[in-house]
């Protein structure tokens, strides 16, 4: 089954790598947004299976975006995974407590990205 993932990430390079990883290696469909605002719109429109959300973004950051997603009945059931460069356990705990399904640390291993997402969301092997 083809998964559809919404990638919300301000860094073009990282977005592209993630997209390549998910599409080329896992055969999933990746929808990309380069900001929180765009991400909200795409989420509503595309109804992805999951959202991979960067934490540190200008303007509207990860937690803010998450808040909006949770506030919208159309999007609040979509599982969200944070991507973060934060390494401190306390920070990670703080992020986890915001109501996401998991954290993926940056830098991530593109070979295993889909596998990691599946693991966090409890998806069986495709």
């Amino acid at each position: 089954m083809t998964r559809r993932i919404l990638l919300i990430e301000d860094e073009d390079d990282i977005r592209e790598i993630a997209q390549v990883s998910l599409e080329s290696l896992a055969g999933w469909k990746a929808v990309c947004a380069h900001s929180g605002r765009e991400g909200l719109e795409l989420a509503r429109r595309e109804r992805p299976d999951a959202i991979l959300l960067d934490v540190m973004m200008p303007d509207m950051d990860g937690p803010a975006t998450l808040e909006h997603l949770a506030a919208d009945p159309d999007t609040r059931d979509i599982p969200v995974i944070f991507m973060t460069a934060k390494v401190q356990a306390s920070e990670r705990r703080k992020l986890s407590d915001l109501g996401v399904r998991g954290l993926i640390a940056k830098p991530f291993d593109p070979i295993k990205l889909a596998e990691e997402i599946s693991g966090l969301l409890g998806w069986g092997p495709k």
């Binding site: 860094e11 790598i17 080329s24 460069a85 940056k106 830098p107 991530f108 291993d109 593109p110």
Partner: peptide
């Protein structure tokens, strides 16, 4: 981390035979 993520990602994809 941001540039590193990109570097690590691209290298990973290359090394993993994704391209």
């Amino acid at each position: 981390r941001t540039p590193l993520t990109s570097i690590r990602g691209s290298l990973g994809l290359l090394a993993g035979g994704a391209v």
